[in-house]
Design a protein around this nucleic acid. Structure first.
Lengths: 299, 299
DNA sequence: CCTGATTGTTGCGATATGTGGAATAGTGAA
DNA sequence: TTCACTATTCCACATATCGCAACAATCAGG
């Protein structure tokens, strides 16, 4: 018999001063109560109860032990109940990891709105642009912009497409000319995303036509906002998600380039650790995030 | 598997981030660790660990649970250790029950001296003149002046004889005359001890001669000090332990009566609850009490 | 004083539970 | 790709656990 269960039996007997009464309330048989208590007393090496066939009372050691362990048992029960609630209800901590570009733009508002809906949820937000090992980083949910799979032990969920377009600053285009065809890009400075997988490749499509351009030969960055700033400063042409360049396009500090040629689709994707079944709070947040990003604030 | 043990396994795995390492430190096999954790997670309905064959990490629920139950487990271990120490060493609480006459005279000094020798012992002292049911009164040790046995479930230990003698005040003796033989007592007011067993009987012996006198017909009390005061006030003759009347005899406010005739011996006796084996602190106190009462301050 | 009812304990047989060793699948490093 | 290591699963076996029934001890009531 487990220790904790023995202690619960002991507390029940100590409270009711009866073996059979304790057995009834615990749904056991009197013999089990006897054996459980014998085991506990033997384990402790201390006599806890004074038994007569007609009455049961505590030794002083038993009384001290009962007073001491009763709150601990209560603490276990509370912890069990809380963790169960936290699992079934949408409460508890969500550790989110996201790329910096999203962390600075959409996430503060997402989290604020979500927390007004679910006040019992806490959020711990870390920003990383590198793709992380989700399990070793202690993350419940990683937001990434990528083409879905990676390894087979993470679970992912596609949220929405992330439109991208080629952009450059008016000053740059005035100085170097506006490309008319993908082939023209080879004569331009193409600011690429700096990945350790090697230089970035832009696979552009226009209807059935496809062209492949290698970017980042002379200038690259591993951060979308930094890349955008370089482009605005007139350093070259780059390929970025629209939500990063939207403000600059609106302000006219960036202009679309080759608008008929579209790069491969990227997906806003949620990655989860290898849960067998997702905790409620993560599912709830994922749903909320999807509606937010597709309806409230489309990318 | 017991709950508490499962939790310990979980904590070991959470700390070492490895099943086999935890199995080693706990002296188990890896399969047992796996099963134990599966059982715990199933019981809680929550996934606590994210397992990959190469690394183990905590879910946020698991981290919260670990942080919460770790001090509780520590509390159990501490409680277990303390109660073991308290049993083997002379420490802990001793609940003593004594008659009022002793509580006011010898016990304060006994307890004070004992506690300077054993500072980790606490004493809870209750005074009752009635013989109590030791188990239902939550007492570890009852001090009584009586003829030993009562029922068969209590354990007793004779400490020493308690000499008694017949006494009366000089004023009473002057007024009513001094008895010369036990038979004279029948013409006197004999203050008896008020027990529900009926009127007190004085069995007096002088060598081979024996006389039986019934006392308490007109005046009785259930408290030795009160009886002594009545005698000092000249209400009659009474039979009391010497340690109660010693001061009055010294001061001359009481005088011995029929000094050649001695009543049956009473024994200072310690009664214990039906322990299978006596806790150390009770044995130590009993030994100390015996030496105190036979050597330091004989009755 | 005796009897009946209740309580805590023990013996025993059936069941279930847990155990360790070997085999398996998955993963990271060389 | 191979190799070493990890967590898991499978399976046979031993152990313990359980409930029922019988037993001893005690108290209440006649």
């Amino acid at each position: 018999m487990g220790d904790l269960e023995s202690i619960k039996v002991f507390l029940a007997v100590a409270e009711q001063r009866s073996f059979v009464a304790a057995a009834r309330t615990l749904g056991m048989t009197p013999p089990s109560v006897t054996r459980s208590l014998n085991a506990l007393e033997e384990k402790l090496g201390v006599q806890l109860l004074l038994r007569t066939t007609r009455q049961v009372s505590l030794t002083s050691a038993g009384a001290a032990y009962a007073a001491r362990v009763a709150p601990l048992v209560q603490g276990f029960d509370d912890a069990t109940e809380d963790i169960r609630d936290g699992q079934s209800q949408t409460a508890g901590l969500i550790r989110i990891n996201a790329p910096m570009s999203m962390g600075e733009r959409v996430l503060p508002d997402v989290i604020a709105q979500f927390r007004t809906l679910h006040p019992r949820v806490s959020v711990a937000l870390t920003l990383t642009d590198r793709m992380i090992d989700i399990v070793s980083e202690n993350t419940d949910l990683a937001i990434r912009i990528s083409e879905p799979p990676k390894d087979k032990l993470t679970i992912w969920r596609k949220i929405c497409r992330v439109p991208r377009l080629l952009v450059a600053s008016p000053r740059y285009l005035d100085a170097h000319g506006t490309p008319e065809t993908p082939e023209d890009l080879t004569r331009h400075t193409c600011i690429g995303y700096d990945s350790d997988a090697g230089p970035e490749v832009w696979d552009l499509a226009n209807g059935a036509s496809r062209r492949r351009i290698t970017a980042g030969a002379v200038l690259s960055s591993n951060n979308g906002d930094l890349t955008a700033r370089l482009a605005i400063n007139g350093e070259g042409i780059t390929l970025l998600p629209r939500f990063i360049t939207a403000d600059a396009l609106q302000a006219g500090t960036l202009r679309p380039v080759l608008p008929d040629w579209t790069p491969p689709e990227l997906w806003l994707t949620l990655y989860y650790p290898p849960y067998d079944r997702l905790p409620t709070r993560l599912a709830t947040f994922s749903d909320f995030f999807e509606t937010y990003v597709t309806e409230t604030r489309p990318m």
